[in-house]
């Protein structure tokens, strides 16, 4: 098991390298270096350009150096936790990201939990009662959930909340708590708001996971070992949960590899629509204003999040499935 974990962590290194390289490439993609566009923007808005500051920035980021030096400078700072400066906000990227990243992680985890619990329960139901009315209803809702764009669902839910409950559900906090320090009250307030994004972000993932779970379990239910268990006189529920369920849940666990990127993706769009204080709107604005240090840093962080998530799920999988461990 230990060697397995070490190997998996070791595998992460090239992944992270490629990711950092891609992020860097995207940062570099807009024509001209960002400093030039920054100066152009400042001059256009009639602000004074501090030439000294510009020069020092140029030196810090090695903008006159070849790309690999720039990459090296960027990545070596990134590793030390210095993600550069946002030119739009004129503050270190790290300060901007801090709480928002925490909220993104929190929402993603919550959504993951929601997705798994709902998908597991419904998937099992729909496999065990295959072709029942309940199965058909769930399958239909699942397909609809898959086909409806995330942001539409957000708008529809907001509309319903607005019309039926008369509450405005944008954001993650009530105005009173937005800038307040963390207290129990603020947490409760967060939980009151967070369910809409969780449902919205989670729906597509839940819908596909239900199908995964249903298909897996149906496959497993046909396996001879289920008959073996029956032939041993094991009660039906135990024959279901001890064997096919346990086996079917394994590929389900590994879905985290694509579920997590999907959740973070979903979070970006939905939080723009719902104006949540997560990384989504920040990233979106950064892209629109070509604030590339911020955008690149965020992209890198989000990708690292998914890589870590995938690693955790792999370890979890190895822990529950001996076949993976012994491979």
């Amino acid at each position: 098991m230990a060697t397995y974990i070490v190997r998996r962590v070791f595998y992460m290194i090239p992944t992270l390298l490629v990711i950092s390289f891609l992020s860097f490439l995207i940062m570099q993609a807009p024509p001209g270096d960002f400093l030039t566009s920054y100066i152009a923007e400042l001059s256009a808005s009639g602000e004074q350009v501090d030439l000294e500051l510009v020069e020092s920035l140029r030196a810090t980021y090695g903008l006159d150096e070849p790309w690999y030096v720039q990459y090296w400078l960027w990545i070596s700072r990134f590793v030390r936790g210095d993600f550069g400066t946002s030119f739009e906000w004129n503050v270190p990227v790290r300060e901007l990201i801090g709480q928002r990243l925490a909220l993104t992680i929190f929402i993603s985890m919550l959504t993951l939990l929601f997705t798994w619990i709902v998908a597991l329960a419904i998937g099992v139901y729909s496999a065990v009662y295959q072709y029942s009315i309940g199965d058909y209803i769930v399958t239909t809702i699942g397909f609809l959930g898959l086909a409806t764009p995330n942001f539409m669902l957000a708008l529809i839910l907001m509309y319903i909340a607005f019309q039926v409950f008369g509450i405005s559900v944008g954001g993650l906090f009530s105005p009173d708590y937005t800038n307040a320090p963390w207290t129990w009250g603020k947490f409760v307030d967060l939980m009151k708001h967070v369910w809409i994004p969780v449902i919205v972000i989670g729906t597509a993932g839940t819908a596909s996971l239900i199908r995964v779970m249903r298909a897996n379990l149906l496959d497993e239910l046909k396996k001879p070992y289920v008959v073996t268990a029956q032939a041993k006189g094991v009660p039906a529920w135990r024959a279901l949960f001890k064997y096919p369920f346990r086996v079917a849940i394994n590929p389900f666990l590994s879905t985290i590899g694509w579920l997590l990127p999907a959740l973070i993706s979903g979070d970006i769009i939905v939080s723009v629509v719902l104006s949540l204080q997560t990384t989504g709107p920040l990233y979106y604005r950064a892209l629109l204003s070509q604030d590339m240090f911020l955008a690149g840093g965020l992209l890198m962080l989000l990708a690292i999040l998914t890589v870590i998530g995938t690693l955790l799920s792999d370890i979890l999988l190895a822990w529950v499935d001996p076949r993976v461990r012994y491979e």
Binding site: K223, P224, Y225, V227, T228, A229, A231, K232, K242, Y243, R246, V247, N250, V320, D321, P322, R323
Partner: peptide
């Protein structure tokens, strides 16, 4: 009454 099956591999759960 007990039974033994044709396929000893798939008749055992792979993860127990």
């Amino acid at each position: 009454i007990s039974m033994i099956f044709q396929e000893p591999m798939s008749s055992f759960s792979p993860i127990h």
